[in-house]
Every structure is written in structure tokens, then in C-alpha cells.
């Protein structure tokens, strides 16, 4: 069964796009917060916390600073969220086949995912408060740091499947746990995802103790809620991608949910035991280790393939 049978509008607005996706995203966000809280020996938020946060923010006054371009200020959060939601249409969400697909959609998905960070950076520039500016610079610097290694890491499975289409890769690699054959790629992909989501220890762009809330310092109400939702959606999409590509395909929805949950637990563990990196350390880490190691793994894989042929 594919979801292309349904009316595309329904697909985009409710399931698996739009509302459903946001709901799942917020639930995953709660899980992440709850896990971190439990690892810090406290109880943590209630399950509906992210929902209450978003509804409250949507109902709050939105202050548009006098010096900003109001169209950009209002538009950028929408662009970011739209990017994340569109990306979701090409991934096997909740273990179901992607809603849409075409050859090369993996690359498009990855770029759509970057749209959120880009609009975040632009939003920071546009607000031109000093904390936002530094936050924006850091967000974009970080983007350039993790983007290449993350891309290289996700292209590993594509290389195995000899296809750049998510659904193709998933079906051809079904049952193959690439985490075993490409462990470095998996780790880089997972950590790259944390960088993308600006989770600790890669939260320098929104480091509270240095630059208040980074690019979002001046955002209140609706804009903040939309960025928040965008992050939540990206969390689901990113987890889905990594789980589908590295953890032996999609299987059935329950099995798949467990896989993404496992990834979330590992991420929560990383978040709690690691100290925030300075932005120069983040860049150094990605280029010096991340990118090089993934390339090395590619070389090994290609050589091994060549020998076994």
C-alpha cells in the first residue's frame, strides 16, 4: 500500500504530513527531554509539555522589533517549518513507505532539512540584535561544519544500494544492518543529526550562558512556536532517515518505532554526558575527524568491494 493512492492534499495536510507529523515531532521532543531529565536524576516534564508550550506560544503576543524587515521576520519561520515538513514526505515515516519519491530524493531531503538552519540564520541576521547576530553566525558556521560529513555519512548506504532514492535504498538494503559494516558512518550520521538539531554538546549557536537564546533571542509568540515545531519535525525526519538507512530498513511500524527510540536514547545519553563545545572546537571536530573518517570508510569499502569482485 502506498499513500499516493490518497488525495495528495490529505497526505500533505494530515497524514503523514502536517498535523500528524507535528504531533509525532512534539512527542519525540518530550521523550528527548524526559530521557535527559531521567538521566539527570529528576522527573522531567509531563507528556503534553511540548504541546502546551506550542499552543501557549501561538496564543501569545508577537512582538516585531522596530528595526527588522517584518516580512522576513514573519516569513522565515514559515519557510523553515515548510522545509522540514516537505522533507518528511520523502522519508519512510513511522516505517511506512515514503509518500512521494523520485530518483535522487535523498539529496533533496538533506537540503530541505538544511532549510531550517538557513532560515534560522537569516532570522538571526534580520533581527540584528547582538546576541542574534552571533547566534546566526554560529548557526551558519556549524551548518558548514557538519553538512559535508553528515551528507557523506548518509551517502554510505546509498553507495551500497547504488541508488540515491530513499525508497530504493531502503528496499534494497532491507535486512542489512549497515551499522555493522559502516559503524563510522553511523556514528557520524547520528552525531551530525545532533549538530543539525543544535542539541548539546553542539548547542553553541543558542548557548544560553553566552548569547541568551542565539538567533531566536528576539522572537516571541508565533515565530518561536514555528521554529520550535520545525525542530521537532526535523528530529523525527532525521531519526527516521538514520534508522532507515543504518538499522536494517523499516520492517514493520512497531519495530521501526523501537529503532528510532533506541537512537533517541543514545542521543539523550550523549546530551547528558558531554560538555558544550566551543564553535571552533565543533568545526575542528567535524572537519578533522568526522569528514576524514567517513572518507576513510568509503575508501575501505570501495577497496573491499573491488577485491571481492
Amino acid at each position: 500500500m502506498t499513500f499516493t493512492d490518497f488525495s495528495p492534499l490529505l497526505t500533505i495536510l494530515f497524514f503523514p504530513g502536517g498535523l500528524f507529523l507535528m504531533g509525532v515531532g512534539l512527542l519525540y521532543e518530550w521523550l528527548d527531554h524526559k530521557l535527559v531529565a531521567r538521566l539527570q536524576n529528576r522527573i522531567g516534564p509531563r507528556w503534553f509539555q511540548p504541546f502546551a508550550d506550542v499552543v501557549k506560544l501561538l496564543a501569545k503576543e508577537e512582538i516585531v522589533p522596530a528595526i527588522v524587515n517584518p516580512y522576513l521576520f514573519v516569513g522565515l519561520p514559515l519557510v523553515g517549518l515548510a522545509g522540514a515538513l516537505t522533507a518528511a514526505l520523502y522519508v519512510p515515516l513511522m516505517g511506512l513507505p515514503p509518500a512521494f519519491n523520485f530518483p535522487g530524493d535523498l539529496i533533496v531531503t538533506l537540503y530541505l532539512l538544511s532549510l531550517l538552519t538557513l532560515s534560522l540564520g537569516l532570522a538571526g541576521w534580520n533581527t540584528s540584535s547582538r546576541f542574534s547576530l552571533i547566534g546566526a553566525t554560529r548557526a551558519l558556521t556549524q551548518l558548514f561544519a557538519y553538512e559535508a560529513p553528515f551528507l557523506l555519512a548518509l551517502l554510505g548506504p546509498a553507495l551500497v544500494a547504488r541508488s540515491w532514492q530513499v525508497s530504493e535504498i531502503v528496499s534494497r538494503n532491507a535486512g542489512q544492518w549497515l551499522i555493522v559494516t559502516q559503524p563510522i558512518g553511523f556514528v557520524v550520521a547520528l552525531i551530525g543529526l545532533m549538530g543539525k538539531l543544535e542539541l548539546p554538546p553542539f548547542d553553541a549557536p543558542e548557548a544560553e550562558t553566552e548569547i541568551v537564546a542565539g538567533a531566536l533571542t528576539e522572537y516571541s509568540g508565533r515565530g518561536l512556536a514555528l521554529f520550535h515545531l520545525g525542530k521537532a519535525v526535523e528530529l523525527v525526519v532525521g531519526l527516521t532517515l538514520v534508522a532507515a538507512l543504518y538499522l536494517g530498513g523499516i520492517g514493520n511500524p512497531l519495530e521501526f518505532a523501537l529503532k528510532t527510540l533506541g537512537l533517541l536514547i543514545i542521543m539523550a545519553g550523549f546530551q547528558s554526558v558531554l560538555t558544550r563545545l566551543r564553535i571552533d572546537q565543533t568545526v575542528g571536530l567535524w572537519w578533522r575527524y568526522g569528514a576524514l573518517l567517513v572518507l576513510l570508510q568509503w575508501v575501505i569499502w570501495i577497496v573491499w568491494k573491488g577485491l571481492s569482485l
Binding site: R42, R46, S220
Partner: peptide, 16 residues
């Protein structure tokens, strides 16, 4: 005490 139980989060920016 973990006041996050009640949804209280300490924010840095007055806008939030």
C-alpha cells in the same frame, strides 16, 4: 525540586 514538572523553564530572553 525539579520545577520542570510543572512546565516551568528558566529562559534567558525576556521575549520568551
Amino acid at each position: 525540586y525539579d520545577i520542570e514538572r510543572f512546565g516551568v523553564k528558566l529562559q534567558g530572553s525576556p521575549r520568551h
